[in-house]
């Protein structure tokens, strides 16, 4: 369990081989009078499969948006493999593949067009894009739907095509906000396999999720966020401390209410 220092250092972590894939220092954001993220510091080691868990409204999406350059933080810094996201955004973004949650896609494109578009926007050449788009559509089971407009896709298919747009440029770090929402079990298993393979070959994955069981089975590291604060971070085994991650999470976050009040619901 490596708790980062409380005071943010002013110099970026050196781009040494052991440098973290993502280093976050003192990251904070407030919306009007509500503090969404309260000065979080966190290291995501290179080659880790990092789970980010927290209750609804904990600040997960806000933190990930700031880490990926979508939302300007009020305070703090973020480095991706030693590149500062907010002073050199173009270089940092080239290293990252991002699946943002709750955003639309350019859904009047067909699936193949959308993945191609994502590749070309990254400045890749046409042949590489075409080959990789074909591979991604095949592996994600979207080959039959490749010629259909994304607006006609189901929720799960939409999630998968969005994932394809995040993968096409072979990023060193993947940041996925709720990648398994609305995805059927078979596709979820496929996606997990892709991600595990990606991590096994040197990539780093950050996923946010509500499903503790999934994070416990899939991730090597986990961070628990609630109310904009980082409650715990480290290896999954270190954080759960011998219990199930779900029990540990509930203990950390609190707020469990007794169901005794609903005695009238007992039908017998």
């Amino acid at each position: 369990m490596t708790m980062p220092p409380a005071t943010p250092p002013t110099t970026p972590p050196a781009a040494s081989p052991s440098a973290p894939a993502i280093a976050i220092r003192g990251l904070g954001k407030r919306f009007a009078d509500k503090v969404a993220v309260n000065g979080i510091s966190l290291d995501v080691p290179a080659g880790s499969f990092y789970g980010l868990v927290g209750p609804n409204g904990a600040g997960k999406t806000t933190a990930l948006s700031m880490a990926t350059g979508l939302l300007r933080p009020d305070a703090g810094q973020v480095w991706v493999h030693g590149t500062d996201v907010w002073t050199d955004p173009l270089a940092a973004k080239a290293l990252m593949g991002v699946l943002a949650d709750g955003v639309r896609l350019f859904d009047r494109l067909t699936g193949r067009q959308l993945v191609t578009y994502a590749g070309l926007l990254r400045g890749m050449d046409r042949d590489t894009v075409a080959a990789r788009a074909g591979d991604l559509l095949r592996v994600l089971g979207l080959e039959d739907a490749a010629g259909k407009l994304v607006v006609d896709y189901s929720a799960g298919m939409t999630k998968k095509i969005a994932l394809a747009t995040a993968l096409i440029h072979a990023p060193r770090v993947l940041v996925l906000d709720e990648p398994f929402e609305a995805v059927d079990p078979v596709s979820a298993a496929n996606i997990r396999e892709i991600l595990a393979d990606y991590v096994a070959h040197g990539g780093t994955v950050v996923v946010s999720s509500h499903v503790m069981d999934l994070v416990q089975r899939m991730c090597s590291h986990v961070a628990v966020i609630a109310g904009g604060n980082l409650l715990a971070a480290g290896t999954v085994d270190g954080v759960r401390d011998g219990r199930s991650l779900e029990d540990r999470f509930v203990e950390l976050v609190g707020g469990r209410s007794s169901t005794e009040g609903l005695s009238w619901l007992h039908t017998s």
């Binding site: 350019f106 009047r108 494109l109 067909t110 193949r112 067009q113 191609t116 578009y117 070309l120 926007l121 990254r122 400045g123 890749m124 050449d125 046409r126 894009v129 739907a145 010629g147 259909k148 407009l149 607006v151 006609d152």
Partner: peptide, 30 residues
């Protein structure tokens, strides 16, 4: 029900394979 499938890449195949070409192709589709 699923819309009609269109096979190719449309304008994406005709504009230069650059970021601005991709943006132009996407906008033309729109």
């Amino acid at each position: 029900r699923g819309g009609r499938a269109t096979g190719g890449l449309g304008p994406f195949a005709r504009f230069p394979a650059t970021p601005w070409g991709a943006v132009a192709a996407r906008c033309l589709v729109y």
